[in-house]
Design a binder for these strands. Structure first.
Lengths: 142, 142
DNA sequence: CCTTGACGTAACAGAGTTGGTTACAACGAA
DNA sequence: TTCGTTGTAACCAACTCTGTTACGTCAAGG
């Protein structure tokens, strides 16, 4: 397993919302509906929607007949933003324990790796930034 | 934690070997020495060295006075090869459970995500491929 | 031939993550 | 006031990850 599926679930629910929302005159979308499409538990969906809400990508409404809405147009939500919303861990981690500082390699390698990993993160971010929920929806439907 | 530190440990030991090997007239390097620099247990190091050996990046010698050697010049070992040797899991995972096939999004989104994730993997691979153990050693030493 | 030191690997443990689940308080529209 | 939904805590089983102990295997060198 190792890597999680939060980005996948997040993109899935956003895409579903982008597909369904236009046909709902102001009606919000529930975590139950989304969970049905993703094939998981509504609480799992709400957990992820909560992170997307904190990032300003969706808005929640409470009370009876409530639910969720996209807070931006599907074309204005790129996957880099989605990933940032649901994933805070880095792609690669440094040493679990501080390496031996009496050794030149142990002393000097961490900044080098940090810079290298940072470049890899940027590469992924750039790649994901080039794709929007609108793109995903279009490719999914056609 | 989430992401593991195997790539970090692998690059660390390879860099250490590249630094020390020239001063050892044919003498091999032990997992004990490497573990001392990384500040971990020799078995952890041997596990990772075993993966590097399967990938043809290092060679092990057994018996008394045995140990490890680089199987290629440090300049011919790039970090993409190191990552491939120690990490088989993808950057991002698809759904834990198959999404609802009765839903257009559930049915069509996986190929789109697969392609997207594949491009992100390539971006990381390309980035890591541009850096060799010789580069890391040079930058680490000053 | 036998000692010795290192590899190779299985087994286990503690801590943490992940996805799923139940339960329930808070909320607001009708 | 009712009722459906969000928000969140709590728990669970399964898994990963790093570290650790233990021990068999191997080959160099006396």
């Amino acid at each position: 397993m190792s890597s999680n599926s939060r980005l996948t679930v997040a993109v899935h629910v956003l895409t579903w919302m982008a597909l369904v929302e236009p046909g709902r005159d102001g009606g919000a979308i529930t975590s139950d509906e989304l969970a049905n499409s993703v094939n998981t538990n509504p609480v799992v969906v709400r957990r992820i929607l909560g992170q997307l809400r904190e990032a300003g990508l969706v808005a929640a409404q409470r009370g009876q007949g409530a639910g969720w809405r996209l807070a931006r147009a599907p074309g204005a939500i790129d996957l880099a933003a989605v990933r940032a919303a649901v994933e805070s861990d880095p792609l690669f981690s440094l040493h679990a324990a501080t390496p031996n500082q009496a050794c030149p390699v142990g002393r000097g390698i961490q900044p080098v790796l940090r810079q290298t990993y940072s470049r890899a993160e940027s590469a992924v971010r750039d790649e994901l930034a080039g794709i929007s929920i609108a793109d995903v929806l279009r490719e999914t439907m056609g």
